[in-house]
Nucleic acid binder design. Structure first.
Length: 580
DNA sequence: TCAGTTCGCGCG
DNA sequence: AAAGCGCGCGAACTGA
C-alpha cells in the first residue's frame, strides 16, 4: 500500500472520494501559504482514513473546480479529526469548502486533559511525543508552500494527518477515563462557531475611532502638562534622530512616580489606582489618573487597533483561544475585544455598515444563578424562581429591612456583598471592594456583620463553601463535567470561583454550538463573544427575528445545566455595540 | 542587547 | 491570619 497519493486532476478526485465517503472516521489537515485565511492561500488538504493511502489534494490545481466534491467528503457523517480545527476550518471556508458533522479536535481534547495530568504543551509534535511516544518533525511548520512542492513536504503533510487517527484513540481513552465526554462534545461543537466568528470579524468605524484618538491624545497632553511642576518641565534635547523632549522624570515609570508622590506628601506603597483612590482630592493624583487613563486608552486600544484591520476585509478579526483560561473561559487577543472599555465613545465605534444591525444579548446574573444551582441554596433558588431581585433580597437580609425600603445605594452595596462573599472575600476585602467598585462606604465592623448575616441568610452557600474547604487538595467539576484540580496551596477563593466561572463558560459555549447550527445558512454572523455576552450582525429586516432566536437559544443552552434556576438572557438591537 | 518578569489596568 | 477570580497587553524593569 502506498503511504499517500497526490491528487491534482479532477477525474482522480472522483476516484478517491468513493473510498473516503465510506469512512466512519477521517483525519483532516491542511497546509497553507501562511497563517491568515484572508491573506494566505490553501495549498493542500490531506485526508487520512484507516486502511488506505492518505489522500493529498493539491488545491492550487483543483480549486475551485473540486469544491463540490471535497465538500461532499467533508460533510459526510464521518467524524473528522483535526489538530486545532479552527485554523483549517477558516482556510476551507476561504475556498467555500463546506465542513459539517462531529469534529474531534485533538488540541482541545488535550487542553481539557491538562488538569488531569495531560501534556502541558498542546502542539501536534508535543502530543505525538506525549501520547504515542513518537517524534514528529517540526520542519513542516517552517516550510514554504507558496512555491513548488517537494517530496519531503508531501511526506510530512501526509504524516500530520495520519498520526491524528492514532492520536484520537489515545485521547479518547483519556477523555473517557477522566469523564470528560460531555464537556469534550461541548467544546467540539463550539469550534465551528468560533472559526466562523473569527473569519467574519467585526466592523470598526475607523473615522470615529480616529476622532476619539485625537481627543484622547489631547487629554493626555493636558494631563501631562499639569504634572510638569512635579515631574519637571520638558527640555529639548539633541538626539541621534533629531530633537526630542526630555522630562525630569518619566511619568510612565512607576518607580519614579512613586518617589514623586511620596515627596509630595502622598504616602502610598505603590502607584496603583487602588492606592491612589485614598488621595483623589489631591491635584497630582487627579492629573496622574487622567494621564493614566488616556495613556492606557491610547497605547492599548486607540493606536494599535486600527493597524489590526484586515486589508482585504476591512474588518477586525480578533483571535479567540477557545480554552484560553484555566477556568474554561475563552480568551481573546489581536485585538482583545473582551477588554474594550465600556464607555460609549469606544463601543459606538464597533458598528455595522448600512442595512445591517447588531443584536446584542447577555445573560442576566449568570454567575449568581450558577451559584444558586451548584450550592443548592433554597432561598436563592426560590428567589430566582419568583423573579425576585437577588441584590435587593441580600440587602434586606443583611440590613434586616423590608425589601420595599431598600434604597438604590443599599442595593449597590448588596451587589458587592453578593459577588465578594460567594467568592471568598474577607470582611476587609469586602469593605475595600464595596468602596472601590460601587462607591459604597462601610465600616469594618459593618463589613464583618454583613458577612455573618449573609451566610446566616444563605445557608446553602455556607455548606457549599464548607464542602469545598474539606476537599483538599481535591478536584472540582463544572456542571458540564469540566475538571479542575487543585494543589495543597490553592486558596479557597479559587476553589469557590473556578466551578462557577467554568459553568458559566460551559453555558455560553453550549449556546454558541447551538447558535451556529441555527445560523448556518443565514446571512447572520457571530461577531463577538465576551464571557456572558454574544453579539450578532444581521440584515436589518431580520433583526427582530434574530434577537428572539438569540435570546431563546441562550436561555435554552443555560437551562440544560441549571435545572432548578431559570436562566434569563436579554437582547437588544442596535447600530453599534454601545446599544440603542 | 534581548528575552523574561512585573506592574498597572481594561473587561467579565 | 487573611484572602475575590479569570484573562491580554503595553511599558518599564531585570538579569545574564
Amino acid at each position: 500500500m502506498e503511504k499517500w497519493i497526490l491528487i491534482d486532476k479532477m477525474d482522480q478526485v472522483k476516484e478517491v472520494s468513493e473510498k473516503l465517503l465510506q469512512a466512519k472516521v477521517m483525519a483532516v489537515d491542511t497546509e497553507t501559504t501562511g497563517l491568515n485565511p484572508h491573506i494566505s492561500k490553501l495549498r493542500l488538504i490531506q485526508i487520512a482514513v484507516e486502511g488506505s493511502a492518505t489522500v493529498i489534494f493539491d488545491c492550487f490545481k483543483l480549486l475551485p473546480e473540486a469544491v463540490k466534491e471535497i465538500s461532499d467528503i467533508l460533510t459526510s457523517p464521518a467524524i473528522k479529526i483535526f489538530q486545532n480545527a479552527k485554523f483549517d476550518l477558516k482556510f476551507l471556508r476561504s475556498e467555500n469548502i463546506q465542513v459539517s458533522g462531529w469534529i474531534f479536535d485533538t488540541m482541545l481534547a488535550a487542553k481539557l486533559l491538562k488538569t488531569s495530568g495531560g501534556p502541558q504543551s498542546v502542539g501536534l509534535a508535543s502530543l505525538v511525543s506525549f501520547y504515542l511516544n513518537q517524534t514528529l518533525s517540526k520542519e513542516q511548520q517552517k516550510s514554504d508552500f507558496s512555491s513548488k512542492l517537494t517530496m519531503e513536504q508531501l511526506n510530512y503533510a501526509a504524516k500530520d494527518a495520519e498520526i491524528l487517527l492514532d492520536l484520537r484513540l489515545r485521547l479518547l481513552d483519556e477523555i473517557k477515563k477522566n469523564q470528560l465526554i460531555e464537556v469534550a462534545r461541548l467544546e467540539f461543537a463550539c469550534v465551528y462557531a468560533i472559526a466562523s466568528m473569527e473569519y467574519d470579524g467585526i466592523y470598526l468605524d475607523k473615522k470615529k475611532w480616529l476622532i476619539l484618538s485625537e481627543e484622547t491624545q489631547q487629554m493626555k497632553e493636558k494631563a501631562l502638562s499639569q504634572l510638569y511642576p512635579f515631574i519637571g518641565y520638558p527640555t529639548v534635547q539633541l538626539g541621534l534622530f533629531g530633537n526630542h523632549k526630555a522630562y525630569g522624570s518619566n511619568v510612565n515609570s512607576n518607580k519614579q512616580v512613586l518617589k514623586m508622590l511620596n515627596e509630595n506628601g502622598i504616602s502610598v506603597k505603590n502607584t496603583s489606582k487602588q492606592s491612589l483612590s485614598h488621595f483623589v482630592q489631591h491635584p497630582i493624583v487627579v492629573s496622574l489618573m487622567k494621564y493614566r487613563y488616556a495613556s492606557k486608552a491610547l497605547s492599548s486600544f486607540l493606536h494599535t487597533i486600527p493597524n489590526q484591520i484586515n486589508i482585504n476585509t476591512g474588518r477586525l478579526h480578533p483571535q479567540y483561544s477557545q480554552i484560553g483560561a484555566w477556568s474554561g473561559r475563552m480568551s481573546c487577543g489581536r485585538p482583545n475585544i473582551q477588554q474594550i472599555p465600556r464607555g460609549k465613545a469606544f463601543r459606538q465605534c464597533f458598528a455595522t455598515l448600512p442595512g445591517r444591525k447588531l443584536v446584542i444579548a447577555d445573560y442576566s446574573q449568570i454567575e449568581l444563578r450558577v451559584i444558586a444551582q451548584i450550592s443548592g441554596d433554597q432561598r436563592m433558588i426560590v428567589a430566582y424562581n419568583n423573579g425576585d431581585d437577588l441584590h435587593k433580597l441580600t440587602a434586606s437580609l443583611v440590613l434586616q429591612k423590608k425589601t420595599s425600603l431598600i434604597t438604590k445605594k443599599e442595593r449597590q452595596a448588596a451587589k458587592a456583598v453578593n459577588f465578594g462573599l460567594v467568592f471568598g472575600m474577607g470582611a476587609a476585602g469586602l469593605q475595600a471592594y464595596a468602596e472601590e467598585t460601587y462607591g459604597v462606604k462601610m465600616s469594618s465592623s459593618e463589613a464583618v456583620l454583613f458577612k455573618e448575616r449573609f451566610f446566616m441568610a444563605y445557608k446553602g452557600v455556607e455548606t457549599w463553601h464548607k464542602e469545598l474547604q474539606k476537599n483538599k487538595p481535591g478536584i472540582s467539576r463544572t456542571l458540564a463535567g469540566r475538571k479542575h484540580t487543585y494543589n495543597r496551596e490553592s486558596g479557597l477563593s479559587i476553589r469557590y470561583n473556578t466551578p462557577v466561572q467554568g459553568t458559566a463558560a460551559d453555558i455560553l459555549k453550549n449556546a454558541l454550538g447551538m447558535l451556529y447550527v441555527k445560523l448556518k445558512d443565514s446571512n447572520t454572523s457571530i461577531v463577538a463573544v465576551v464571557h456572558d455576552e454574544i453579539v450578532l450582525e444581521c440584515d436589518q429586516a431580520e433583526a427582530q427575528e434574530t434577537s428572539l432566536l438569540l435570546r431563546k437559544t441562550m436561555e435554552e443552552a443555560g437551562a440544560r445545566y441549571l435545572k432548578d434556576v431559570p436562566v434569563v438572557a436579554e437582547a437588544s438591537i442596535a447600530d453599534s455595540w454601545a446599544g440603542k
